[in-house]
């Protein structure tokens, strides 16, 4: 089963709003609160998979696209209903703390976010490659029928995999909330950026997503500095086209067989 999660960006926005709720209502810093956001989004992912995606696994592939777009719309408008349209930002103890490292001006919040993101990626890698459940998830992604044949509980595996994906994006939302202002409509742009990253890196490759993420963000930042901030997407999508010309399956993707 290859479900493309069009609600990815909206799940991230919900991670941001949950971080905002935790910070404003309970005074929990997003750098701690991200754990709660991840847990909440894990449950959301589990419910979406079990309650919705599971019902259409045998339906034509377009159905999954429609379904996930529907989930995206519900999440976006749910956020609009709950939090209103104005942009929000979460204050963290690390906001505005900076230091000079030689000639480099370092924003501590961004640095910590980066470090936690790397640590989470590493943890995800260790889970997928080093545990029985992680290996079973990879097996089901590699050959779903084969996974059924060996007696894997494929429905449960999908639910956990989807939950983990949602948890990661929930954590990501919380971790960027201290320096990225957000509003309910921010989800679509985030989804598009993540597809860009995943396609550049290669569908289904964890390392590809990691490298793709670095490439896209560095390309966009450089584009913003040397061209104009409004042209940064131009740079990242040109990168996408360029890479697809030479490696149609992405940097680390295998050719669809």
């Amino acid at each position: 089963m290859r479900v493309i999660n069009f609600a990815h960006g909206d799940m991230m926005v919900w991670g941001m709003y949950l971080a905002w709720l935790l910070a404003t209502r309970l005074g929990i810093d997003p750098y701690l609160g991200f754990v709660g956001c991840a847990a909440a989004l894990f449950v959301v992912g589990l419910v979406v998979q079990r309650g919705l995606v599971d019902r259409i696994v045998d339906a034509p592939h377009e159905m999954q696209i429609l379904l996930m777009l529907g989930v995206a719309l519900v999440l976006e408008n749910g956020a609009l209903l709950a939090f209103g349209p104005e942009p929000q930002r979460v204050r963290s103890a690390l906001t505005l703390s900076t230091f000079w490292l030689g000639p480099l001006f370092v924003d501590v919040a961004r640095l910590v976010t980066f470090a936690v993101a790397v640590a989470l990626s590493l943890a995800l890698y260790l889970f997928l490659f080093g545990t029985d459940l992680g290996r079973t998830i990879r097996a089901a992604a590699d050959n779903a029928y084969g996974a059924l044949v060996i007696g894997a509980d494929v429905r449960r595996v999908y639910a956990v995999a989807f939950g983990i994906g949602a948890a990661c994006v929930g954590a990501a939302g919380a971790l960027v909330s201290p320096f990225l202002p957000f509003q309910p409509s921010a989800g679509l742009a985030a989804s598009v950026t993540s597809f860009n990253i995943v396609i550049i890196g290669g569908m289904g490759s964890l390392l590809g997503a990691f490298v793709g993420g670095l490439l896209v963000s560095v390309a966009e930042s450089l584009g913003a500095v040397f061209l104009a901030p409004s042209l940064k997407e131009l740079v990242s999508f040109s990168l996408l086209i360029l890479i697809l010309l030479f490696r149609p399956a992405g940097l680390f993707g295998r050719r669809a067989g």
């Binding site: 590699d142 029928y145 084969g146 060996i150 295998r254």
Partner: peptide
């Protein structure tokens, strides 16, 4: 299928149905 495997029936299916991008050991 999972319960049937658990009761002791293993199946080498038509076309083998291995996990091609995982190692032999995995």
């Amino acid at each position: 299928p999972a319960e049937i495997v658990a009761r002791g029936i293993a199946h080498v299916p038509e076309g083998r149905q291995l996990f091609p991008s995982m190692t032999v050991l995995e």
